[in-house]
C-alpha cells in the first residue's frame, strides 16, 4: 500500500452564496508523506481536504493531480481514496464487518473473499472479535477504528482524515493518535490529516500546513513551525508564545522591564516573541529583565509561572522546574537567549 504524490494547484473555493472559503492555494504531498492541515475552525482546512477527496470541486483554474494525473473532474468514488470522517459515517444498517467490506462489495469482490479481507483488516485494527457487532454496540473509539479499517480495506491511494479524533475524550484521543501514527508509518501510505489540535498535527504530520482565513500561513516540519513561525498568527496558534514590546536601539532591545542585547537593526517599535520553556527565571539582582510574579501553577512535572508584564499586557509565562516555590508579588529576573527571541 505505497502512497502516491499529490499536487494541489491553485485550488480556491467560492460557495454558491459568494462566500470565499478558500483562496487559491497550492502545495505538494510526497509519496508516502503524512501531511497535517492545522488551523482554527473556518480557516478552510476541511474545504481543502474535500477538494483533494473529490467531495468538492475547486473554483475554475484549480487542479488536483494524483501522481501527475489530473483527477480534478473525477468524483470521489472514482479517485480511490480512503476517507475518515469526524462523525465516523458508519452505516447503521450494516454490521461492523459488512461496513469494512463495503468498499470491496461495490468493487464486485465476491462475498467470501471480501469478508476474509475485511476480517484481516479488522484484525490489524485489533477488532477481530467485533465483526458481527452492530455499530451502535461500539464505543466511540471502536467506531473510529472501524471507520479507519473500512477506509483502509480498499487499499486506497491516499488516506484522508477529517478531524477524526475530535468527537472522542482526551485520553482516548491520545491512544488513537498513537495508533494512527503507527498505522501511517507501517503502511507508508500518503495521508492528509485535518485537525485544529496542534498536538495531533505535530505527532502525525511529517509536515504541517498551517492555515488562516482561507489561506496557507506556513508549510513546514513540526520543528520549523514551532521554532521558526513565519507570522505572528502561526507563532501564537502553535504552542504558547510570550510577547514583549519595546524598541531596538544600538543592538539593545529596550522594554519596560529591562534591556536585552540583540543582533538586529534599530527599530522604533519591535515585538519579540519567545516560548515559555526558553524563559529562564534568575535572581532579580543584576538580571536583564525584572518582573513580579503574578501567580504560579504547580503542574507536577513542571510549574508554570505567570509574570506581571504591566498594565494591559498579557502576563508572560515561564515554564520552570518543579522544585522552587514562587509567591505572588515576589520579584524575579528573566533571561532569554538572543537565539530564542523571534521578532515578527
Amino acid at each position: 500500500m505505497t502512497g502516491i504524490a499529490i499536487t494541489v494547484e491553485a485550488c480556491g473555493k467560492t460557495f454558491a452564496d459568494g462566500t470565499r472559503a478558500l483562496s487559491p492555494i497550492s502545495f505538494e504531498i510526497g509519496a508516502g508523506e503524512s501531511i497535517a492541515i492545522l488551523g482554527p475552525s473556518g480557516c478552510g482546512k476541511t474545504t481543502a481536504l474535500r477538494i483533494i477527496a473529490g467531495l468538492e470541486g475547486p473554483d475554475p483554474g484549480g487542479r488536483v493531480l494524483f501522481d501527475g494525473a489530473d483527477v480534478t473532474p473525477l468524483p470521489i468514488e472514482r479517485r480511490n481514496v480512503g476517507m475518515v470522517f469526524q462523525s465516523y459515517a458508519l452505516f447503521p444498517n450494516m454490521s461492523v464487518i459488512e461496513n469494512v467490506a463495503y468498499g470491496l462489495r461495490v468493487r464486485g469482490v465476491p462475498r467470501q473473499p471480501r469478508l476474509g479481507q475485511a476480517q484481516e483488516v479488522l484484525a490489524m485494527m485489533r477488532l477481530a472479535e467485533f465483526g458481527g457487532r452492530r455499530i451502535d454496540q461500539l464505543s466511540g473509539g471502536q467506531r473510529q477504528r472501524v471507520a479507519l479499517a473500512r477506509a483502509l480495506a480498499v487499499k486506497p491511494r491516499v488516506l484522508l482524515l477529517d478531524e477524526p479524533l475530535t468527537a472522542l475524550d482526551a485520553a482516548l484521543r491520545e491512544d488513537l493518535r498513537a495508533e494512527i501514527d503507527g498505522l501511517l508509518r507501517t503502511l507508508r501510505i500518503s495521508s492528509v490529516y485535518v485537525t485544529h489540535d496542534q498536538a495531533e498535527a505535530m505527532v502525525l504530520g511529517d509536515r504541517i500546513i498551517v492555515m488562516e482565513r482561507g489561506a496557507i500561513a506556513q508549510i513546514g516540519t513540526p520543528r520549523d513551525i514551532y521554532f521558526r513561525p513565519a507570522s505572528r498568527f502561526v507563532a501564537s496558534f502553535v504552542g504558547t508564545m510570550n510577547r514583549l514590546e519595546g524598541a531596538i536601539r544600538g543592538g539593545v532591545f529596550e522594554t519596560r522591564a529591562g534591556r536585552l542585547p540583540v543582533d538586529r537593526a534599530d527599530a522604533a517599535e519591535a515585538v519579540a516573541f519567545f516560548r515559555p520553556e526558553a524563559a529562564r527565571l534568575t535572581p532579580a539582582d543584576g538580571a536583564p529583565l525584572r518582573f513580579r510574579v503574578a501567580r504560579c501553577h504547580f503542574l507536577g512535572a513542571a510549574q508554570r509561572v505567570y509574570l506581571d508584564a504591566g498594565e494591559g499586557a498579557p502576563a508572560l509565562i515561564a515554564d520552570t522546574d518543579n522544585r522552587r516555590t514562587w509567591q505572588p508579588g515576589q520579584e524575579t529576573g528573566l533571561a532569554v537567549s538572543a537565539s530564542d527571541l523571534l521578532f515578527l
Binding site: 477527496a53 470521489i76 468514488e77 470522517f85 459515517a89 447503521p92 444498517n93 461495490v106 473500512r150
Partner: peptide
C-alpha cells in the same frame, strides 16, 4: 445525517445508485 453517510459510501467507491440502494433506503 444521510449526507455524511452518503459521502462515506462514495469515498468507498459506491456509485450514486448504489449509495441510494445500500445506504439511504435501508436507513
Amino acid at each position: 445525517d444521510a449526507r455524511t453517510l452518503e459521502e462515506g459510501a462514495a469515498s468507498l467507491g459506491a456509485t450514486p445508485w448504489q449509495r441510494f440502494a445500500h445506504v439511504i433506503l435501508p436507513n
